[in-house]
Design a protein around this nucleic acid. Structure first.
Length: 487
RNA sequence: GGCCCCAUCGUCUAGAGGCCUAGGACGCCGGGUUCUCAACUCGGUAACACCGGUUCGAAUCCGGUUGGGGCUACCA
């Protein structure tokens, strides 16, 4: 049997470094064993999935040097590789589960479910669907359906006993069936949930080894149960540790840049970033930590995957990137990379157009435009403060703008302007009273070239990071504030 | 709260009962080199979370404690 692994990203946001880390491990294992590596898009969340995000993920993984044997962009014998295009397949499988009595229709309202969970938590019970709709007779179900009451399909779970999950590195893990939820398998919009789609697809795509994030460990029993219901052989499972922030919490963009696009915009080289991720899962040769993909593949061994969640240590990435910059490039290749990074003609042209009206000597260019060629800019709380806003409003403005920028589906000066106008409106102040700190946070100075264009040219990832730094300089945002402002 | 996972220098890690006086890398500190800085080079700093077992012998095995993390959605 040939080894087949997969990476199954969900196109609901920026391409995450964690996705690249999991992809790298799946890639190396497959290639080391002469197998195939598959990329599948898990876009069953219709509200959040976008084609832009999907494209960005594919592009980013390619940028890093990873490639796949089958996927939505390259095709393959087990397609389609986009779950939104496989609805009919899931529907059939749900019908089978229903027919075999391994799943049931549930008409409960979200309100009832909320109340139920609150009560369970209050009495220290595991949160789990209470099975109300399992007692519905066929007649009652038919009647509700005829009345057009929306329903979901849930997984039937044994009331007693334990489920044994065999993890390739962790060994035998026992989980009580009583603590496993009767998971929704098909949503009321007819789309499958991850749990169903992932099992059906892994089987149909003949995936032999599932290496995925540790966050999936507790739902493994549901997946195993589905394999059993369908009469399929489950794949080998291995749950990978999650990448961490320096404070050991799960790597999150609130605390750290997580987007591959950010690292690209900062001027990290793809080989260095991939090498860095490799250091977290492949043991390098004695005394030399520089590894390219073929070497990482060759040295890859399951036994060397550590189970402790590694901190994403940017300092070490910096060192590695520096080595790539100076050791793996001659001057010509270095210049070419620097040019591609920041001096590409169209970008330079836009920047020049902003500067031309504002300078008297060409030598004014350096100080005026330096922030376009920097990663972070140094700012102090004092520089950020503005007479028209108190500290709380100031932080709120930065936070709201950050959220607003993240929510934009297109990145044009007009969109950027709209976000800032909305921020001003929500703070009930004039636009010009709110923009000053943004000049400081983004360009490093209160007097600079136009803000919207600067934000546009710098790009979403650098801007997000500069706003995050500004917020941090101002003392950070409390979780209470986050909750309040999110309304 | 409940369930589950994890635990070696600040960080990434080597280590699968004696080879451990715990090794390497990043960082940090100091020396050398050098027109400055960086790079390079030499040296130093620093860890087996804790408590009990098992064993002639434990970083390695077992149990407990503590700590960290994840999950607990009609998100993945």
């Amino acid at each position: 049997m040939t080894v087949r692994t997969r990476i199954a990203p969900s196109p609901t946001g920026d391409p995450h470094v964690g996705t690249a880390y999991v992809a790298l491990i799946n890639y190396c294992f497959a290639k080391k064993n002469g197998g195939k590596f598959v990329l599948r898009i898990e876009d069953t969340d219709r509200a959040r999935s976008t084609r832009e995000s999907e494209q960005a993920i594919l592009d980013s993984l390619h940028w890093l040097g990873l490639s796949w044997d089958e996927g939505p962009d390259v095709g393959g014998p087990h397609g389609p590789y986009r779950q939104s295009e496989r609805s009919e397949i899931y529907r059939e499988h749900v019908q089978k589960l229903l027919a075999d009595g391994n799943a049931f229709k549930c008409f409960c309202t979200p309100e009832r479910l909320d109340d139920m969970r609150a009560a369970q938590r209050a009495s220290k019970l595991p949160s789990r669907y209470d099975g109300l709709c399992t007692s519905l007779s066929a007649d009652e179900v038919a009647k509700k359906e005829a009345a057009g009451i929306p329903y979901v399909v849930r997984l039937s779970v044994p009331a007693e006993g334990v489920c044994v999950v065999n993890d390739l590195r962790r060994g035998r893990i026992e989980i009580e069936w009583g603590s496993v939820d009767m998971q929704v398998l098909m949503k009321s919009d007819g789309m499958p949930t991850y749990h169903l789609a992932n099992v059906v697809d892994d089987h149909l795509m003949e995936i032999t080894h599932v290496f995925r994030g540790e966050e999936w460990l507790s739902s493994a029993p549901k997946h195993l149960l589905l394999y059993q219901y369908f009469g399929w052989e489950p794949p080998e499972l291995l749950h990978l540790p999650l990448l961490r922030n320096p404070d050991k919490s799960k790597l999150s963009k609130r605390k750290n840049p997580t987007s591959i696009l950010f690292y690209k915009a900062m001027g990290y080289l793809p080989d260095a970033l991939l090498n860095f991720l490799g250091l977290l899962c492949v043991m390098p040769p004695e005394g030399e930590e520089i590894m390219d993909l073929p070497l990482m593949t060759d040295r890859f061994a399951l036994e060397h995957i550590s189970l402790g969640g590694p901190v994403f240590d940017v300092t070490k990435l910096d060192w590695l990137n520096g080595r790539y910059l100076r050791e793996r490039n001659d001057l010509d290749s270095f210049m070419s990379k620097a040019g591609t990074w920041g001096l590409e003609t169209d970008r330079l042209r836009r920047i020049a157009a902003l500067a031309q009206p504002r300078i008297e000597r060409l030598s004014d260019l350096g100080p005026l435009l330096a922030f376009f060629f920097a990663g972070r800019v140094a700012v102090t709380a004092e520089q950020l403060r503005t007479p028209k806003l108190d500290d709380v409003s100031l932080r709120k403005a930065l936070q709201l703008a950050s959220w607003g920028f993240d929510a934009l589906t297109s990145w044009q000066t007009s969109d950027i302007e709209a976000v800032l106008k909305d921020v001003a409106a929500r703070l009930d102040v004039k636009l010009r009273d709110v923009t000053r700190p943004f000049y400081v946070a983004i360009t490093g100075s209160a007097t600079s070239v136009p803000l919207y264009d600067s934000i546009d040219i710098l790009g979403r990832d650098i801007v997000r990071e500069r706003l995050r730094i500004a917020l941090e300089v101002l003392g950070g945002v409390s979780s209470a504030e986050l909750k309040e402002w999110a309304k």
